[in-house]
Nucleic acid binder design. Structure first.
Ligand code: FES
Ligand code: FES
Lengths: 141, 141
DNA sequence: CTAAACTTGACCATTTTAGTCAGGTATATA
DNA sequence: TATATACCTGACTAAAATGGTCAAGTTTAG
């Protein structure tokens, strides 16, 4: 199981944004330089973050992005959902009664993977952007 | 983040094995039929499980595999480790002082991903094959 | 002797990932 | 109003990972 760059970068970029957006909008160029993420890639990510109303954009010179919510109200779940970083542990379709093996009942490990999924998602639901800010105050770049 | 088939199948197959190996060794053919997993793929998986001393093999007609330990002592961690299903959330090399961005310090989200990794691994360390057996007694196929 | 079952290693199609690239449009400011 | 800055959009792609298959063995019960 691994975390993809898209999810990782989205969170990184938002933490960066949250630190600096109180004064001016933050340009992707700045985030790119500070965090070492390709600017073209960031554009893809922010397009989704914007669609999901996590950030607002300001176009033109001196433009950039600003958070659209209080950092306390932006949970990792919201970020991941926005960029399609999803936790998938079961193989089967959850709604279906059928198992991943095509049989009529769920497979013998289905419950286990379901528990796991909940376990992981709980972590994402608990953590907010705010938590990450506090957590890193000392280590500003 | 998603669980790969290799990890999922390994656990599935071992639960199946644990149920039936008290009487006779269980052939991959049987597991394949019961669990709907390709026999060729199972062979790859069991080769690794054997190397890691989770199962023993008995060759020849009427042969098959048997657990090499008490189900209570086989944790998901052990199984996943055996088949190289690893949890990877950080991007950087953990031992290194460098960050994932190539900079001299760890990135602003490093601690978060590290926490996540621990969170997930805790789940795997707690669950044993025994737990899964009990959990599914009613739903035998 | 032979069929069942493990053993080993190579091979491969498909999908996913992690981006790049090219061409826009909007707007602050000089 | 010219222009540089920065957002916006969609297409494209190389490389890696995934999820297997296939072939050619060896071992051993019966
Ligand atoms: S994972 Fe849901 S039935 Fe197997
Ligand atoms: S994940 Fe470790 S430094 Fe970024």
């Amino acid at each position: 199981m691994k975390l993809t760059s898209k999810g990782r970068y989205a969170v990184m970029a938002l933490v960066d944004l949250a630190r600096f957006d109180d004064i001016n909008p933050v340009s992707l160029r700045d985030i790119s330089l500070r965090q070492g993420i390709s600017i073209d890639y960031l554009e893809q990510i922010f397009s989704k973050l914007k669609k999901n109303e996590i950030v607002k954009s300001i176009r033109g010179t001196q433009g950039g992005y600003v958070l659209n919510k209080n950092p306390n109200d932006i949970k990792l779940t919201n970020i991941f959902h926005a960029v399609d970083e999803k936790v998938k542990t079961v193989q089967c379709k959850k709604e279906s009664k059928k198992g991943c093996n095509g049989k009529a009942t769920k497979c013998i490990t289905h419950n286990l993977w379901d528990e796991l999924e909940i376990h992981i998602n709980t972590f994402f639901e608990r953590k907010s952007l705010k938590d990450l800010l506090n957590n890193n105050k000392e280590t500003r770049i």
